[in-house]
């Protein structure tokens, strides 16, 4: 069944809810593994580099965002691999899903309104369109 899941996280509340759902699905089969994908958004890099005192702090801050997700997976004894990638979140998630033959992509929706979506663009929409596998959007 769904043996290889991709869980896209950004450290937000929504990605924590997505993690809960991923845990449920992972429990359905015995040899399930999850690719946890965090994308450092290129559009935010300037501001993040500016606000961090050096490379180490920047990577630490990002890692800190995913810690709740990791501890949830560890508690539930689910095997996972963490990918810290860089680029446009939508495109990178799609690329990873299609290259790694993922069975299902799981991600949280940011719940933007129509105007925000026009300005910021919707990651979940992009993933839904681009990924070859089923996509579960958790709200």
């Amino acid at each position: 069944m769904y043996n290889k899941l991709l869980l896209a996280v950004d450290g937000s509340e929504n990605s924590l809810r997505a993690t809960e759902e991923a845990v449920k699905i992972a429990h359905l089969c015995t040899e399930c593994s999850i690719d946890v994908v965090f994308v450092a958004d290129h559009s935010k890099t300037k501001s993040e580099v500016l606000h961090a005192q050096g490379k180490e702090e920047l990577n630490y801050e990002r890692r800190k965002k995913i810690l709740p997700v990791e501890s949830n997976l560890q508690e539930n004894k689910i095997s996972y691999t963490l990918y810290m990638l860089h680029g446009d979140p939508g495109s990178i998630i799609v690329e990873h899903a299609n290259n790694e033959s993922i069975d299902m992509v799981i991600l949280g929706s940011r719940g933007l309104n129509a105007l925000q979506e026009m300005v910021l663009g919707s990651v979940s929409h992009k993933v839904m369109k681009g990924a070859e596998s089923p996509v579960l959007i958790v709200k």
Binding site: H42, T45, E48, V49, L50, L58, H86, G87
Partner: peptide, 12 residues
Amino acid sequence: LLTASIVDDMTD
């Protein structure tokens, strides 16, 4: 150097 750090991070 600031720009280099930004490009470093973007391209990992």
